[in-house]
Design a protein around this nucleic acid. Structure first.
Length: 268
DNA sequence: ATGTCGGCCATAGGCCGA
């Protein structure tokens, strides 16, 4: 079972690049972020004609996540629990029925968190950094619930977290950024420490591996990237991992997203 | 330091978010 995650930065702008990548990469499941579309406007036929079931959790202009799956899906749910007042579409879950095993998959678009606003070292209540950290507390709670089932499950998407300095070409320029600040990294580690395996790092070590290159300042041409798209695997899913790769070359194509796909192959 | 996109409203370019 090949499961991919891809922040497409707008479905309308990726109307060619996304199907092209799907046709080549042939993931069984694709978790999409930043569809930037309401559910009714999502071009589901484009994927249905390729054999994918389509489940979206969209909103106007911003955010929005989706699951495309060639395998049957059960128990789809939308929205990260823990705050009924949160209207941002950043979380979708479903159970994928594999040939051997069912896998619970969660697609997420974690808040960016910039600008960082602190008052005496505390995030300013209601600010974007505060929203990011609170969202990560809710993610921690949901992760704990799902881990308790002791079944194969994974959470993948754009975490907007640079886990360590080696995950950025220029770590010094990210020190004060919401993607790399100590509070952000600690919140990510706290989730990891529940017992997840960070799929990419379980297989590939060292610097120079990125999943995002800014459109600005020739970041791609200079390979000035960051690794912020991650797969977190439950112990039962980690035991099934065959491979995990980042499709870097996608960034060099026509009209690319600023992110590239990352995928895992599970024996499931 | 800056360099770019995408989407919205609205129909040209400014604003927001990243």
């Amino acid at each position: 079972m090949k499961i991919a995650s891809f922040n497409i930065n707008g479905i309308k702008a990726r109307i060619k690049a996304l199907p092209d990548w799907l046709d080549e990469a042939q993931p069984d499941v694709a978790l999409l972020q930043e569809i930037k579309s309401v559910d009714e406007a999502f071009p589901r036929e484009l994927f249905e004609e390729r054999g994918y079931r389509v489940e979206t959790h969209g909103q106007k202009s911003f955010n929005g996540v989706a699951i495309l799956s060639k395998l049957p899906l059960e128990d789809v749910s939308r929205g990260l629990p823990g705050d009924d007042s949160d209207e941002q579409a950043r979380w979708i879950e479903a159970t994928v029925i594999g040939d051997k095993t069912a896998v619970r998959v969660c697609g997420l678009y974690l808040p960016n968190g910039n600008p960082v606003e602190l008052d005496n070292g505390q995030p300013v209540r209601g600010g974007k950094y505060d929203y990011k950290l609170k969202w990560m507390e809710r993610l921690h709670a949901r992760a704990q619930e799902l881990l308790a089932a002791e079944e194969p499950f994974l959470m993948a998407g754009d975490y907007n977290i640079i886990p360590q300095d080696e995950d950025a070409k220029k770590p010094e320029s990210w020190q004060e950024d919401a993607l790399a600040r100590p509070e952000s990294r600690a919140a990510f580690r706290r989730i990891l420490n529940l017992g997840f395996t960070e799929a990419f790092r379980a297989r590939t070590h060292g610097p120079g591996h990125y999943s995002f290159w800014d459109y600005q300042a020739g970041a791609w041409q200079r390979d000035n990237g960051i690794r912020i798209d991650h797969f977190l695997l439950s112990p039962q899913a980690a035991d099934m991992m065959i491979d995990c790769q980042i499709d870097k070359e996608i960034r060099g194509r026509e009209k690319p997203s600023d992110h590239v796909p990352i995928w895992v192959e599970l024996d499931a």
